[in-house]
Design a protein around this nucleic acid. Structure first.
Length: 923
RNA sequence: GCCGGAGUGGCGGAAUCGGCAGACGCGCGCGACUCAAAAUCGCGUUCCCUCGGGAGUGUGGGUUCGACUCCCACCUUCGGCACCA
């Protein structure tokens, strides 16, 4: 290889990075003449080292931003650091250095690592959330939220991480064992006075994704997280006369409420309990208290509970029903009390079964079928013969029962047969959910509380050895009934007074309206979403800007006194108390209202608060009279493309939407959403297909890769090796293939191409391939399909090598091919593209060039390969001119030797023609 | 249990509107260059086969002239939610 042909990535890359920075090539300024594009990628936490995941998130995002820039957009692509947070403190504790020193040293290091990517970050707009100039405005937003009653302070049981020594938001508690999102320690509950943001006020709006181009996955995660359920709240009355409100998603089952259950912590428990039951009730409450949430919420746990001795009145029918307490009812959801409808709720059913409480079906199947369940017995032989004769379908279960499924019209004949053949024993039938038992003296229907006991006793006396429990399990647990045991199933209302016969989910609305008319209840919506707990008992965060005055209570710090500075001289070792509280003087202050002595809030804010608005600080990080410069806001917002990991779906991505909507209602932000389009990258696993971790020793270091291959190759490989939204295990051999591609591009452009007398067909072929590739690459950039972007360019390169040997190397077509190739590569491999661009004698910089446009005429094929099928099976391929007539295509296909051979004299019945694509001969 | 994503060669993956399955790359095999190795280049590479073909995109059905693609029912797997009334 000649000196010139040797590709030295490190030299080229540092050379161009310096030049670009010196020239301010990527500075984004307001320009009303050009369409704007705000491309944002999630800002890193300054953990100390840029890992391959950062590269995977950022370099394809950068390539996309560069592509948009070349397409004529004025592109803003900023970067910054989410600099507050626990890891800084933990690392500081371990190394005995101040969290601030640790954080800012890491930022300095990571800033340089980020620059090695060759990304088009506009560093003038860098924002660091731990800077006082930044958190002043985080505090400002906090005081605004307080003033608009969107932030409040409340004593409540909150999740506490005993390892991090702080409270956590509900979103930061993960998994079955309810562990801390950061350190994986299971959380405990503590009763504390804490600050909350009223995220629940925006629950409905957060469920509306109509203004967003966001991945289905994220929308689903957020929808599940918010967990909206619509139903009714209904007020029962205790015998003492206290109102007892319940929430139900199925008001149409009110007539089936045969008992009530309260959470053990429910305030009415004591008043409800009878003196005889009180001791037992109290013991149960104590036991429930001792259990952790994890134990209490285990779904597979056997039901437990205690009768209070009290009763309540069902408002719709005056029915007097017993009130129990049980830990399967949670104080934190709804009203902490439920009406139990054991016939149609699996949990209530299990509870009723265990404690022998009545079960009253009020919903019947509405599919027009009646189904029967016939208990095995000696009468079966005759009966089944009769069923067969009557043409009634049935099947025998392995345990010997007979399962009969009836169309409505067959019901009468079935009943007649059953009476004839089965009278010696008993049988039962279910029409919808109403069971009918036939005894010697005729049928009895189990559809009321009064008949239940009598029927049960009678069944038991007829079949000795059957217990009440096994009978009920058999009846209620049989698979024909099961579909009606979930609260998603609607059927026909029965046993429900004037509503009997009402069917479908219409019943729910009708009953709700009926309740509202009678003042017995109203439409009600419940959410799983909780208000966002933002207090943290740690040092390294923005102090909550509140002053507590004995006279005036919690007073927000006035704007002109912000920021409330975080003091450096603090003992920041976590003790469970806020470190700021232990500072000798810091918290002592005066009340902004009256000037009297007062103390500061000593908790700091959740860092997710700081990162909820960083996209606004980027707009004008030096601006000091407002969180952002309104002119910048008006030009750049909203974020057009947001990229980052999916792990933030129910944390940052909910918080930032809430923050924007709250800001909008406070008159600061505009528009429905902060980030219009979201795209998530997947995760890169180690070569062993496991998550990368230091302890496993499978970590891939981007710095090493850049040292070995150069940033361009690393960028291209990250875009090529997997679907970006999926991620995949790392493959050290795979990157060699991309490195080869980059080297081959280098060689192709720098080696003088041999001349020759090229065939005009070869030249046409070159242009065709170039413009077809351009079409694909353009499309794939638009849709974030980066892997095919790179593979299309690889194909083009292979084709160019092939055609070069045919002598096209000294033609204007060849010059055009090189020009377009370099422009297409510029977003992916910005350094080598710039270098080769310059070596071609083209003007600096390639990154200011427009994206080339597709010459559709050049891209068009003038011959096509026609697929010839017989009965849909491929039999031949024939080359035909593009505009071939249908008749000619048909003739050409039939003339094919392969076709004639396969037809073997058969006469085509039909010929399907898809112009320009295929001929399918049907025989 | 509920919600969502994904199942295609040895591997990562491709197939834009229902029309050539396996692009591109890795790996592997053979060859060229070389004393040799690396690098580079060329050819081959879904499976089976009696060399005529046949089968094939998680499984089983369906629609269609034609299905990786659409419909129905499942299986596996990943992620989220879950005694949420």
């Amino acid at each position: 290889m000649t000196e010139q042909a040797y590709y030295k990535a490190d030299e080229i890359e540092s050379k161009w990075q310096k030049r670009w920075e010196a020239d301010g090539l990527y500075h984004a300024n307001i320009d009303p003449r050009r369409p704007k594009h705000y491309a944002l990628t999630m800002l890193p936490y300054p953990s100390g080292d840029l890992h391959i995941g950062h590269w995977y998130a950022m370099t394809p995002s950068d390539a996309r931003a560069r592509f948009m820039r070349m397409r004529g957009y004025n592109v803003l692509f900023p970067m910054g650091f989410d600099a507050f947070g626990l890891p800084a403190e933990n690392a500081a504790i371990k190394r005995r250095i101040h969290p601030k020193d640790w954080t800012y040293a890491n930022i300095a290091r990571m800033r340089e690592q980020l620059k090695s990517m060759g990304a088009m970050f506009d560093w003038r707009r860098e924002a660091v959330s731990a800077d006082p100039a930044y958190y002043r405005w985080s505090q400002y937003f906090f005081t605004l939220l307080v003033k608009h009653s969107l932030a409040y302070r409340k004593m409540s049981p909150v999740d506490w991480c005993p390892n991090c020594n702080t409270t956590l938001a509900r979103e930061q508690v993960w998994g079955d064992d309810r562990h801390c999102e950061r350190c994986e320690t299971p959380v405990i509950k503590k009763n504390l006075e804490q600050w909350f943001f009223r995220t629940t006020s925006y629950a409905d709006e957060l469920l509306d994704f109509s203004h967003l181009d966001w991945p289905e996955r994220v929308r689903t995660l957020q929808t599940n997280w918010i967990g909206r359920s619509e139903g009714a709240s209904v007020t029962f009355t205790t015998e003492q006369g206290d109102p007892l409100e319940v929430f139900t998603t199925r008001p149409d089952t009110l007539w089936g409420a045969t008992f009530m259950v309260l959470a053990p912590e429910h305030p009415l428990v004591k008043r409800l309990s009878s003196p005889e039951q009180w001791e037992e009730v109290q013991a149960y409450i104590l036991q429930a208290e001792r259990q952790t949430d994890i134990q209490r919420e285990a779904t597979d746990k056997d039901k437990s509970g205690v009768f209070t001795g009290g009763y309540a009145i069902n408002p719709i029918n005056g029915q007097r029903i017993p009130v129990w307490i049980a830990d399967y009812v949670l104080m934190t959801y709804g009203t902490g009390a439920i009406m139990a409808v054991p016939a149609h709720d699996e949990r209530d059913f299990a509870f009723a079964l265990k404690f022998g409480l009545p079960i009253l079906p009020v919903i019947a199947r509405s599919d027009g079928k009646a189904r029967s369940f016939v208990v095995a017995g000696s009468m079966q032989a005759g009966f089944t013969a009769a069923l067969k004769k009557a043409g009634i379908a049935f099947e025998s279960s392995p345990s010997g029962e007979l399962l009969v499924s009836l169309e409505g019209a067959q019901l009468e004949s079935y009943t007649a047969l059953a009476q004839e053949y089965l009278t010696p024993g008993y049988w039962n039938e279910i029409i919808g959910a109403a069971w009918i038992f036939i005894f010697e003296d005729g049928p009895q229907r189990w559809d009321s509380l009064e008949s239940e006991q009598a029927i049960l006793e009678r069944c038991l006396s007829l079949q000795p050895g059957l217990t009440a429990r096994s009978l009920m399990e058999m009846l209620w647990g049989c698979e024909f009934y099961r579909p009606l045991l979930t609260h998603h199933d609607y059927g026909m209302m029965i046993n429900s007074g004037e509503f009997s016969g009402t069917s479908g989910d219409r019943a729910k609305q009708l009953v709700t309206r009926w309740l509202e008319q009678r003042n017995l209840g109203q439409l009600s919506v419940n959410y799983r979403l909780r208000d966002w707990l933002i207090s943290r008992q740690r040092y390294w965060g923005a102090p909550i800007p509140i002053v507590y005055c004995p006279e005036h209570g919690a007073v927000p710090v006035p704007d002109d006194q912000l920021p409330v500075l975080l003091p450096d001289d603090v003992e920041w070792l976590p003790t469970g108390e806020s470190p700021l509280k232990l500072h000798p003087t810091w918290k002592q202050t005066t009340c902004p209202e009256c000037g009297g002595p007062a103390v500061r809030e000593t908790d700091t804010m959740d860092t997710f608060m700081c990162s909820s608005w960083y996209h606004l600080r980027y707009l004008s990080p030096q601006y000091d009279s407002y969180p952002f410069d309104p002119a910048e806001y008006d030009y750049w917002m909203p974020v057009d493309t947001y990229t980052g990991g999916i792990e933030h779906a129910t944390m940052h991505l909910i918080y930032t939407r809430f923050f924007h909507k709250a800001g909008r209602d406070m008159g600061i932000m505009h528009g429905p959403e902060p980030m219009t389009q979201l795209r998530n990258q997947g995760i890169i696993l180690g070569e062993d297909s496991e998550k990368m971790s230091k302890s496993r020793g499978n970590v891939i270091s981007p710095d090493d890769l850049v040292g070995r291959y150069g940033a361009d190759t690393v960028r291209a490989y990250l875009m090529f090796f997997a679907r970006w939204d999926m991620g995949a295990p790392w493959n050290s051999n795979g990157i060699e293939g991309v490195a080869r591609w980059v080297r081959r591009v280098w060689a192709l452009v720098t080696d003088p191409a041999p001349g020759g007398r090229p065939d005009p067909e070869a030249l046409r072929g070159l242009r065709r391939k170039v413009h077809q590739t351009l079409r694909r690459v353009t499309h794939d950039f638009e849709t974030f399909e980066f892997n095919t972007t790179v593979s299309a360019m690889m194909e083009l390169l292979n084709e160019m090598y092939r055609l070069r040997d045919q002598g096209v190397g000294q033609t204007i077509e060849w010059v055009e091919a090189l020009d377009i190739t370099l422009r297409m590569m510029a977003p992916v491999t910005p350094h080598i593209a710039e270098e080769l661009w310059q070596r071609q004698g083209k003007p600096y910089s390639i990154h200011n060039q427009p994206w080339p446009s597709v010459d559709e005429q050049a891209a068009a094929e003038d011959e096509v390969t026609l697929i010839v099928q017989i009965n849909g099976k491929l039999r031949d391929r024939i080359l035909v001119p593009v505009g071939i007539s249908e008749e000619d295509a048909r003739q050409a296909a039939l003339a094919s030797e392969a076709v004639q051979k396969h037809l073997a004299g058969a006469v085509p019945r039909k010929v399907i023609l898809v112009p320009g694509k295929l001929v399918n001969i049907v025989v």
